[in-house]
Nucleic acid binder design. Structure first.
Lengths: 115, 115
DNA sequence: TATTGTGCTACAGTTTATGTAGCGCGTAAA
DNA sequence: TTTACGCGCTACATAAACTGTAGCACAATA
């Protein structure tokens, strides 16, 4: 799967708009999960594998290559970690955590109303 | 593909944590793109198809079913649109737009430094 | 020298997504 | 009243993406 560089045609858009490249990237299996897990601490390849249950090493490696080339993730002595840019991106998606618990509560509420 | 309800096992996690369901959902092909395009206005099925270049009607329909069941998207007289909860979610991911342009600029910068 | 842990790669099998055709429905003009 | 249009889809063959398991090459430690 081609790496979605801003400025190039990506899945969903031929315009080259950066947001479209980003949405393509984040919309790939495990990409969001990898960013999410790398926030707290550096993780080795195999630690990442066990965090992301059932990710195959083949795919983990592909995603890591993409994230590294797009300057969101890097690799140091203690394993894989977010770059500064990756941290910025994480700060944006961080509120998804709290929001999702409210979302889950509302879905439950609704389900109860139906019964 | 099973709909990732919070509280149930999803791709990447068997814990049932809402954030994991959300990351599974948003990590599916086109899900983020659909939310992004529906923000400004309601769109018919066929308008969505042409916004999301190259999405197949089969898949668009699957994603819409998921998003509707998870109470993020609904369907009214003028087409598909975000629910209140969908709007909330959109507000969280909205900053991705501005951030992505900076990200694209930084990537370019870096590329120039290498040459 | 053997063991353990690292980051991977190979590859067959399965799942997911695409691409094209077209159906059934409602509206509305001829 | 039938022809035509746009709507939301569905069917299905083909293609692409992902999984699961095995195991390689390398480095550090025992």
């Amino acid at each position: 799967m081609a790496i979605p560089f801003p400025g190039q045609a990506v899945r969903g858009s031929t315009t080259g708009k950066p947001i479209m490249a980003l949405l393509d990237l984040l919309g790939r299996t495990w990409a969001l999960g990898i960013l999410w897990h790398l926030n707290k601490q550096s993780l080795t390849f195999r630690e990442l594998q066990s965090c992301c249950e059932k990710i195959s090493p083949t795919l983990l490696n592909s995603r890591l290559k993409e994230l590294r080339q797009l300057n969101l993730v890097t690799h140091n002595e203690s394993g894989y970690c977010l770059t500064d840019m990756g941290q910025e991106l994480f700060q944006i998606i961080l509120p998804l955590g709290d929001w999702s618990t409210q979302w889950a509560a509302d879905l439950n509420q609704e389900q109860n109303n139906d019964t």
